[in-house]
């Protein structure tokens, strides 16, 4: 079954429950947006799927193509085809961007197989051109001294190089001006296709003008409370999250 499936997920950090029975299914080839107000648990969702050690899953499953990944190390999940574009990408002083990406690509090869350097660089340059990143970025330390926009482009570059089956983009639009947003969106759109499922996590509808989702889900209080087509995002934009909150006595759970 080719999908990223989240079933009845309950998650706590330091005894505080943040996700409370979340259900979501992202088949390969589809783009799903999860929108929600601050504090609804959106970023927790992305980190838990990726395997961040700070969170405790108390109930539920995360299935990657039918296999439960809870309990696997973050790097195992990554090599199984899961990618997370971070909201706040980390800096790695002294490690060049090219070497970092190369190590990550190498980690996907079978033991004993060496990455072909010329092919690697040819592909790297092609993807950098797509994201309008100057060649100098290969030699700079990972994310060190990068502007907000450069960091986000660098996340998409890594995604393009690692060719995941499922990608989670966590607030990729935050901190981007309109030009950078267009470049990043073009990059993501170029990667869309039948072999990739995308989970877009965002606070604002603005991103969805550029990366048009197949489905939109609204997350409040650690649950998906409403799901619909892309027009749901426009409705949210017009009415605000309050209109969802008002009808929350009987939350409409996602299918």
């Amino acid at each position: 079954m080719s999908a990223l499936v989240i079933k009845d997920l309950h998650v706590s950090i330091a005894d505080k429950e943040i996700l409370r029975g979340l259900n979501l299914e992202i088949p390969k080839g589809e783009v799903h947006a999860v929108m929600g107000p601050n504090g609804s648990g959106k970023s927790t969702l992305s980190k838990v799927i990726a395997g961040h050690p700070d969170y405790t899953v108390t109930r539920g499953e995360v299935l990657l193509d039918g296999k439960n990944v809870l309990g696997l190390e973050p790097d195992e999940r990554s090599r199984m085809g899961l990618f997370l574009a971070f909201q706040y990408p980390l800096e790695i002083p002294g490690v060049s961007n090219a070497n970092f990406i190369r190590a990550a690509v190498q980690a996907r090869l079978p033991e004993g197989e060496e990455l072909e350097a010329t092919e690697f660089y040819a592909k790297l340059y092609e993807k950098m051109d797509l994201l309008e990143m100057p060649r100098a970025f290969t030699a700079r330390s990972v994310n060190e001294g990068f502007s907000g926009g450069e960091k986000k482009r660098n996340e998409i570059l890594q995604m393009a190089m690692l060719e995941p089956s499922y990608a989670i983009l966590d607030e990729t639009d935050s901190g981007l001006d309109i030009d950078a947003l267009k470049v990043v969106s073009n990059g993501v759109n170029a990667l869309r296709g039948p072999n990739l499922g995308i989970l877009l996590i965002t606070h604002y509808q603005r991103l969805l003008d550029y990366i048009v989702p197949d489905y939109v889900h609204v997350m409040v209080g650690g649950r998906i409370v409403q799901s619909g087509g892309k027009e749901l995002a426009l409705e949210l934009e017009a009415k605000g999250y309050d209109f969802i909150r008002e009808g929350l006595e009987e939350p409409a759970l996602a299918s």
Binding site: A50, G51, H52, P53, D54, E73, P74, D75, R77, S78, R79, F83, L84, F86, P89, L90, E91, I92, P93, G94, V95, N99, F100, A103, A104, A107, R108, S141, Q158, L162
Partner: peptide, 30 residues
């Protein structure tokens, strides 16, 4: 080396030891 930095590198497919090693090599690289 922060836990977040290691998590970031692990998310890209490097094992914890590889992530540590790369960070340390980065530290002394110059």
């Amino acid at each position: 080396i922060s836990a977040e930095q290691i998590f970031y590198m692990q998310q890209r497919g490097l094992s914890e030891a590889q992530a540590m090693s790369l960070s340390v090599n980065g530290f002394v690289n110059d």
